[in-house]
Computed example of a mutant assay.
Amino acid sequence: MDDPAKQWARLSLKAKENQTIDLPPAVECNSRILVAKLFTKRKVNLEALTRTLRSMWRSIQTFEVRDLGSNTVLLIFEDESVPQKLMMQGLWTFDKYLIGLNKPLGEESVEDATFDRASFWVQMHNHPLCRIYTATVEQVDASTIGECRGRFLRVRIQLDINQPLCRGRMVNIGEAESQWVAFQYEKLLIFCYWCSVLNHDEKDCHLWTDGSATVRTEDQQYSAWLLTRPHHKSSTVTSG
Rank of each mutant, 00 (worst) to 15 (best):
W8I: 04
R10S: 11
L13N: 10
E17T: 02
I21N: 01
A26D: 10
A26F: 14
A26P: 04
V27I: 15
E28F: 01
V35K: 00
F39T: 08
K43C: 05
K43H: 05
N45A: 07
A48H: 07
L49R: 04
L53F: 05
S59A: 10
I60H: 15
Q61V: 06
Q61C: 09
Q61D: 10
F63T: 12
N71C: 06
F77S: 10
D79T: 09
V82N: 02
P83F: 00
K85I: 15
M88S: 04
M88N: 14
M88V: 09
M88W: 09
W92Y: 04
I99K: 00
I99G: 03
L101K: 01
P104I: 01
G106P: 00
V110A: 03
E111M: 11
A113G: 13
S119G: 09
W121D: 15
W121G: 14
H127T: 07
H127F: 08
R131G: 00
I132C: 05
V137M: 08
A142V: 12
S143K: 11
I145T: 14
E147Y: 05
C148I: 11
G150N: 13
R151W: 05
L153P: 05
R154K: 15
R154E: 08
R154H: 07
V155F: 10
D160G: 08
I161D: 11
N162H: 12
R169D: 07
N172Q: 01
G174S: 02
A176I: 00
E177H: 06
A182E: 07
A182S: 04
F183G: 08
Q184H: 12
V197W: 02
V197F: 07
L198E: 13
N199S: 10
H200T: 12
C205L: 09
C205V: 08
W208R: 13
W208S: 05
D210E: 13
S212K: 13
E218L: 04
L227V: 15
L227S: 15
H231V: 15
T236H: 07
T236Q: 15
T236M: 13
